[in-house]
Write a protein that binds this DNA or RNA. Structure first.
Lengths: 216, 216
DNA sequence: ATAAATACGTTGCCGTAGCAACGGAAGGAG
DNA sequence: CTCCTTCCGTTGCTACGGCAACGTATTTAT
């Protein structure tokens, strides 16, 4: 177990020094594992006992639609945490499969220990955990709002608006390709392309690849 | 401030005795308020400083669509908590308006104190808070799954299936009327009625009012 | 008891968007 | 350089579902 320095920037450990983090981790069961591309970290339906932190590499959370199509639900880059909400809910089956895209080093932490440890730093970590889960909740909430809209155009407008307020600029690049964006918005990919073109023709927006400009 | 005995059953205070709860509450800023029907407890867009617990009465969380229509997002009955996720996210604007349906007694608790109190019981309360928020997350996640489906029939089937596993019985009564159900599923009310009738004609389900029977 | 309001089912109209298939552009591997 | 794969836009077809309007049943108010 080496090179945990990035954990000082991890949402779970914000506010803690490197020394405090290693001190804390040495007191509870945790382990580091390495996964090869395509390896599965968590199967959909698993009941987990550990939450995970990506130390290096990239993984994705995915689920499968009724037709068996893959749907990418989340992108897990370095320092991203998975299984935390699951840990909090205590005993739920995982709704997603987590799979490595590249070679991944992952830190697994026994969540019962994390939640119930009497360690003096545990208090701070629980606060961080609450914040992290809450932010995930609101990210999900944002998507809910979009999925409730009826037309593709409305969905796109609300999404782009939100991105604009996030970046503070009317021109920005999004980190989703067309396929992922259409999944996120809950619409057909070609229908999305069609509507984007129409919106460009209507002078509402401009875009090239993943760079968008809002003209309203 | 009287009759807080129901708080022993509140998700935030599970595992604590009445004495411990009053002890804890007396140590941090909180207040009880009474609202009349139609009164607003939280405005959409508010940045809150307190989380709330419904001590008696009934309130709803609602938001407004682009057309201005009201959408009921949550139903807040006795012992329900609101503003907890918002508290966790620290500084977010409320995405919903909370409004009383009946006379409501509400306990407001300063969330910074709740999160950062050095009180010995605070640890347990943070654990409870994590669990509560996580459960809300998964409830939201369930709805996300449904909203991603493309046809009304699929949405209804997934929803009813889930209800069946919840109740453990193929016949059950749901607590949503048609209007609320159509909102929940993200479809038009008349389209929902239409599809329900078709599904009944197809022999898939039976229903009368809000009592459903799954025949598959 | 009467009136008003709410809840629910039904139906016709028609636009939107899902689906499938295709072509071109861009990027990677050999 | 060429092949192959991925990504994206385009288009025709068609059905699903949103919308509006209406009728009936059940509930609430006065």
């Amino acid at each position: 177990m080496k090179d945990l320095s990035i954990l000082t920037k991890n949402a779970l450990f914000i506010g803690l020094s490197m020394r405090e983090i290693t001190d804390f981790l040495s007191a509870i069961p945790c382990s580091e594992k390495v996964f090869q591309p395509e390896d599965i970290l968590v199967h959909e339906g698993d009941v987990i006992t550990h939450l995970g932190i990506i130390l290096s590499g990239l993984a994705v959370g995915k689920k499968y639609g009724l037709g068996g199509e893959e749907i990418i639900v989340s992108r897990l880059s370095v320092n991203k945490i998975f299984g935390d909400v699951l840990s909090g809910a205590n005993g739920f089956a995982s709704p997603v499969t987590v799979q490595a895209c590249e070679v991944c080093r992952v830190l697994f932490i026994d969540y019962k220990s994390l939640l119930y440890s009497p360690h003096s730093l545990n208090h701070k970590i629980l606060q961080n955990m609450i914040q992290n889960i809450s932010l995930k909740y609101f990210a999900q909430n944002m998507r809910l709002d979009i999925l409730m809209l009826k037309s593709v155009r409305e969905k796109v407008l609300v999404y782009l608006n939100y991105q604009r307020t996030l970046r503070g600029n009317s021109t920005f690049e999004i980190n989703l390709d067309r396929r992922l964006l259409s999944d996120y918005l809950g619409v057909d990919r070609s229908a999305l392309s069609r509507e984007l073109s129409k919106m460009k023709a209507d002078g509402l927006i401009d875009f090239k690849k993943s760079v968008f400009t809002l003209k309203y």
